[in-house]
Write a protein that binds this DNA or RNA. Structure first.
Lengths: 255, 255
DNA sequence: CGGCGAATTGACGGACGTCAACTGCTGTGG
DNA sequence: CCACAGCAGTTGACGTCCGTCAATTCGCCG
């Protein structure tokens, strides 16, 4: 494993508190693996033996029931995942799948649990990380149960705008079909929601989104600091630059 | 505070691992308060200074947005709540309100955070508790995003049946309007769902529910161990016995 | 006895899922 | 180099689920 990668892991809040010695112990039995897009890392119900750390690329956390599927989160580097299952030595409740070519570090869950028992600072850091994840899910449930589809989309767009620097135009970070799943709707319905949100000053051009009248959109979205997290959940620089090219001004076809 | 109450707290997984000395420190600055039904303990957005422990009664955790309200969980003794906010020293994301006369122990958050730093076993126990809460929320989101209202109700009934001993008839633990909020629907819609679920062998008689043909109901519900937790989240004996009396057989009025 | 809130029921409309057809881009192989 | 298949995205038609409004019943409590 490259030492640059090790440094990135070390800089996560989870690991920055550990002693050098313990860090070496925990990472000694670790793999760094590169996966192509679309690889299933973990299926819900699987026993979990590793703590995963996404160093590069992207990962979708999803779940299934009765032939329906939904996305619970999309992770960007640097993020850890399935920490809760590792702590409890339990089966995974979510599936994990790469959405791009990804570099993923796999740390022994057993080693992590042992390290927690020996290092109070680490155990506290784990508790804090889990608290943050928990609160992220509380926000997600509130978003899901309290808002309608159009409102969820509007707030998603505002969050993206802020996270990407606040410029009036930005780029959707994923495929729209994945976004639909994150927002809890069908791709068709998302398409209609994009069409409807044009009335609120939002111009869609492929993956490019321009918020022409932020005040109007905000009146629809009613963003709320107790639901929308406009700062990133972990130390996570947004993924690589998106493609810039896109067929020129493809506004709505004049019917 | 009565020593019997202290013992109940001590028996929680969170506190059973602490040394006597540390336990005394943490509980020394604690209040035991009795609240009437309907008391708001905490409003979303409030700063959180205490870890709450529900010793008797019931508490609803809810959230609000844009004049809509929803229930995220209903707690029964013995349960702790808002642990995550205490760990992070953050504002509450949920409101908490008693639904019955309740005994609630309030522990200094500051003292708990200090104790975590000194006692690895406690910090690990906190991490485990938080992991359990996190996984509970993952289940809740899956339930919400993957199932329709009728399916959520069917699974709720099966869960209640199991938790109350598996007999063919049991008692709803709360008001129906609260249940509706937990299940993410309106009271009117829940009423219709109860009417519709009669086709699957479920007989409703006030708060009494009889599942006449479990196999039929299960074919509708398709319960899943990765969503439905048929065992209780914490060491939580179900609340006191419900009223038994109810006006005799109030089946559907013969139109 | 009277008022209040929970629960139910009906009527209606809107939001959302499903099915199907169509477009345009992309990668593949003849 | 082009033909083709495959997939993302869009659009329309339609049906279902669910929320809203209103009226009614019933038990509870003052």
């Amino acid at each position: 494993m490259r030492s640059a990668d090790l440094d990135r892991v070390r800089s996560l809040p989870l690991f920055s508190v550990m002693s050098d010695e313990l860090f070496k112990t925990v990472t000694s039995g670790a793999f760094l693996q590169k996966f192509p897009a679309g690889t299933t890392l973990l299926t819900e119900g699987d026993a979990v033996d590793f703590l995963y750390v996404l160093l590069d690329g992207g990962v979708e956390l999803g779940a299934t029931w009765n032939d329906k599927e939904t996305t619970l989160a999309v992770l960007r580097p640097v993020s850890t995942f399935i920490l809760a299952a590792v702590v409890l030595e339990a089966d995974a409740l979510m599936s994990a799948q790469t959405i791009e070519r990804s570099d993923i570090l796999m740390l022994s869950g057993e080693a992590l649990r042992r390290a927690m028992k020996e290092d109070t600072a680490l155990a506290c850091a784990v508790a804090q990380e889990l608290s943050g994840c928990y609160r992220g899910l509380v926000r997600a449930i509130k978003n899901q149960k309290l808002r309608g589809g159009l409102e969820r989309l509007a707030n998603y767009l505002i969050t993206q705008k802020v996270r990407q620097g606040g410029g009036e135009t930005f780029t959707l970070p994923h495929e729209k079909r994945l976004l639909a799943s994150v927002l809890g709707m069908t791709p068709e319905n998302l398409s209609r929601a994009f069409a409807a949100i044009a009335d609120y000053g939002v111009v869609i051009n492929g993956p490019q989104v321009t918020i022409a009248r932020p005040a109007v959109l905000e009146r629809l979205a009613k963003p709320d600091p107790l639901i929308d997290n406009h700062t990133l959940p972990t130390t996570a620089p947004i993924g690589k630059a998106q493609r810039e090219r896109w067929p020129t001004a493809q506004t709505r076809s004049p019917s």
